[in-house]
Each structure stands twice: as structure tokens, then as C-alpha cells.
Write a protein that binds this DNA or RNA. Structure first.
Lengths: 112, 112
DNA sequence: AATAAATGAAACCATTTGGTTTTGTTAATA
DNA sequence: TATTAACAAAACCAAATGGTTTCATTTATT
């Protein structure tokens, strides 16, 4: 747990799953952990890593810790990938098509 | 070297640097290695990992191995990040603006 | 044919990673 | 106030990671 950049953070599948869950709905640690088979401290460590690289905020609420997705820093990944867009044009077409749709119906927001 | 997915592959700074270099211009291993301070086998291992997850192709040419960037699989990252676009809207605005420009002048392709 | 160049492969090593179990602390609750 | 719930922290561990040095192989070159 020494390196703390967004690229490293999203490399782990469990952390991506945490991101996925929290992007849908904020959750306290207990509920979050109940999604996984691994132990509590294991999940807690992933949460800490995500927190340390700014991908989520932890709000202390009584004895609970509510975790909120704060995914602004994913923009760094988006920009990095985007600079190589000419290499994945086929997929880009679909992506851009999606962007347009999203813009037109920018109210309907079904996560996952 | 057991996990081989694109997320894992781009987590390492050296590998991102290799991608950056090769996206500009294909290169044999020797020339590629000359960009780094680390040993030859170290770079060769990174190359192998990138190769194994489909981010570059190695073309045997005599005793040389020419490495070509094949970054189609970065589309996976792009799509993953894109699903969380609502979290990084500010950056998205710039990105989308760029996308439109790219489409209009889709012939001019100056890498980096 | 001998040598040098370009690379592959193996053995090894320290650190990081992702996990565990155990113990402690803080805040609600009976 | 005693107990329980929610979490933090520490100690530990196996495996993965990123690196090294050494040796082998293939292809050009002299």
C-alpha cells in the first residue's frame, strides 16, 4: 500500500467492484462488506486505498462510516485513454454514439 | 505475472511509458530499452505482459523483434471509465468537445 | 568459421499486494 | 452500566510483482 495512483487503484477487481457498488448508492462499511466473500479488514483496506487516491469519501456518522463514490479522478484515466483514441476507433464509434444519446436524454440515469 | 488484463497492464508506469513510446513509433527491443534505466530483461518482461494482454504485437524480423502498439483493447478501459462519466463531467466536457473536433477533421492524424 | 548482436530464458531476490486472524476502540443499546 | 455493533489497527503470511544477474540461442557480420 505504498503506491497510490488511480491507475493502480482500479487495477484490482475488488476495488472496481466497490466503485461499481458505491456509484449506484452510498453505503456504510458493513453493507459494503456484505457484498464480498473476503474478510472485513480486506475490504476495509481496499476502501482505504480508494480513499487515499481520492476515488471515495468516507463520512463518519456515529459509529458508522458511510462511503461515497467520488470518481472525479477517473477523469485522469479517461484523458489518458483518450489520447490513444485512434487505436480503438471501432469502440469509439459506439462510445460517441452513447455520448450523444446521453446528452439528449440526460435525465434518465440507470446505473449498471 | 499471472494476472493478465488491461487494467493490470496499464497500472505500471513503465508499461504506460512503453505504450507512449510505441504509440508514436514502432521500435525494436534494443531501441525501446534504451529509453529506460532498468535492465533489458526487465523491459522485456513488461513488453511480454503488454503483448499477452494484446496491447502490442511483436514482429520477428531477422534477429530483431519489432514492437508495435496495438491499443484496441484500451477500448475496454474507455468503456469502463465512461460508465462513470457523470462523476467527472467537467473533464467530460472537454473530452466530448475533442471528440467532435476529431470527427470533423477525421483525416488529420498527428499522433501526440 | 568465428565473432558479435539481438534476444530469450532461467534462477534468484526484495518489496508490494491482498489476504488472514487477533486485539482494541468508539458509539449505541438493553 | 454492561453489552453489543461498527469499525480501526496490528501482526502476520503466501503469492505476485518488478527487478536483477547469468547463461543460452538465433541471426548477422567479418
Amino acid at each position: 500500500m505504498i503506491r497510490r495512483d488511480v491507475f493502480q487503484a482500479i487495477a484490482d477487481p475488488t476495488r472496481r467492484e466497490i466503485i461499481s457498488i458505491l456509484s449506484d448508492q452510498s453505503s456504510n462499511l458493513n453493507d459494503l462488506i456484505s457484498n464480498f466473500q473476503i474478510s472485513r479488514p480486506a475490504v476495509a483496506k481496499h476502501v482505504r486505498i480508494l480513499q487515499e487516491c481520492g476515488l471515495l469519501k468516507v463520512e463518519k456518522q456515529g459509529r458508522e462510516r458511510i462511503c461515497h463514490a467520488r470518481l472525479d479522478n477517473l477523469g485522469e484515466i479517461a484523458l489518458w485513454v483518450h489520447q490513444y483514441r485512434k487505436f480503438w476507433n471501432k469502440r469509439l464509434d459506439a462510445l460517441e454514439e452513447q455520448l450523444k444519446k446521453d446528452n439528449k436524454s440526460s435525465n434518465e440515469n440507470s446505473a449498471k
